[in-house]
Amino acid sequence: MRISDKFDELKINGDGALIAYVCAGDGDTTGIVHALIRGGADIVELGLPFSDPIADGPTIQASIERALDAGMNPDRYFEMVKGLGVDVPLVVMTYYNLIFKRGLERFVKDCKDSGITGVIVPDLPPEESGELGGYCEGNGVDLIFLIAPTTTGGRLEDILKRGTGFLYLVSRLGVTGARDDVAGSTKEVLDRVKTDKPKAVGFGISSGEQAAEIIKGGAQGVIVGSAFVDIIASGQDVVRRLEALAREIKSSLG
């Protein structure tokens, strides 16, 4: 499913999108993805683990390490995604070296063939993204860019022009990781980024309350990662708790 179709569908109902991140290969990924979708996740962002994840905080780093130790790799990743059998948009989040090594064209084709319709690469700024963007466009895959509190001026305009699917607004300076509050910079970024494309806010969201505040602030979606990964890391009652947290957050987005 294309990401834009999902946002169109949500718009009709006046709903905000819950975009759930987990790292593939950490735990029973298929069971985890299905639990998130049952709980109400509209889009699933599946991390493809890389050995040196510089944009991630300790929670997701640890998840990536567990996934790598368990043997996750790009071949297995695409194989697993193919077998998921879900009808929400799937997005791959990974670092550029894994894409580069596989070959840009082959990577995007693998995405398309396995049902992935979006790519997020936190260490690939728009300036370096021309070639990957070309393959994405040719294969019906969205290339999703991040916008930080520090992104301004001509660079912001460039990202707004290039980004497809949705715009990933980073709510604060820093790496991924769950926080209790909503950063003051969030509202400021939301106001500043003027676009027709859907805006989703990520980095630090862990509760329905925070998520509701962000949707009220003008976002079309929230991205939640570390809060789910914390549950996976605990190993306790994982599937039920993931579904419950997804439901709690999703129910606050209406």
Partner: peptide, 8 residues
Amino acid sequence: FVPEVLMP
């Protein structure tokens, strides 16, 4: 090749 936060 750096995260967007660092580009500026």
